[in-house]
């Protein structure tokens, strides 16, 4: 993937370098392709940072230790810091990390990979209210219309093209009931 991480949101927990590392990892979990945005474009790192500064604050030490474990794991494979490696080198690190995670569920670096993966999926497919899924790229990818008030019987018929239903967010629904315009 040719894109680069741009820190275009204020951080609430991570430092800028940590954010770059998390973003590089997330970008390999859900990669970008030409014409098809991935975790980076969806703002997954903003989602993760906001979550760690709030609801997931108990995981703050897990992330800090996890970033160290990732650095150590990377050092065992190649020189350089994870987020500064080439795309191919990063992918090789992730491949080995994912394999380790499958092979030895108790390994902490592998656990950290699974945690970041879970949060990457959350940030990619969750409502943009949480800071990710920018431009609704996650929902667009899979064909999920988002936060709908409801669906009609016609829309539920087997031959209905649900791609024609405009995607809505929680914010859109609040504006419908008179708030969050």
């Amino acid at each position: 993937m040719a894109s680069k991480f741009v820190l275009d949101f204020p951080l609430t927990f991570l430092n800028p370098e940590e954010a770059a590392v998390i973003d590089a990892l997330a970008a390999h979990i859900i990669p970008s392709e030409p014409g098809s945005p991935g975790a980076r474009e969806a703002g997954v790192t903003e989602y993760i940072d906001k979550a760690l500064g709030g609801f997931l604050r108990e995981l703050q030490p897990v992330y800090r230790s996890g970033l160290i474990a990732l650095a150590d794991f990377t050092a065992g494979i190649t020189e350089g810091r994870f987020h500064e490696l080439s795309d191919g080198q990063q992918e090789e690190v992730v491949r080995q990390l994912a394999e380790l995670s499958e092979r030895d569920p108790s390994d902490f670096a592998g656990q950290f990979f699974r945690i970041v993966r879970e949060h990457t999926v959350q940030g990619f497919f969750g409502d943009p209210a949480y800071g990710g899924n920018r431009g609704l790229v996650g929902w667009e990818l899979v064909g999920f219309p988002g936060a709908q008030w409801g669906y009609t019987a016609e829309q539920m018929a087997p031959d209905f093209n649900t791609r024609t239903i405009p995607m809505l967010t929680i914010k859109d629904l609040y504006s419908r009931i008179g708030g969050a315009q």
Partner: peptide, 21 residues
Amino acid sequence: QPIEAYHNMDPRTRKWGLDLK
């Protein structure tokens, strides 16, 4: 919804990269 779908995905599929996406 999509996150739950991810939790229900084919266990034989590699769960990262373009395979996942």
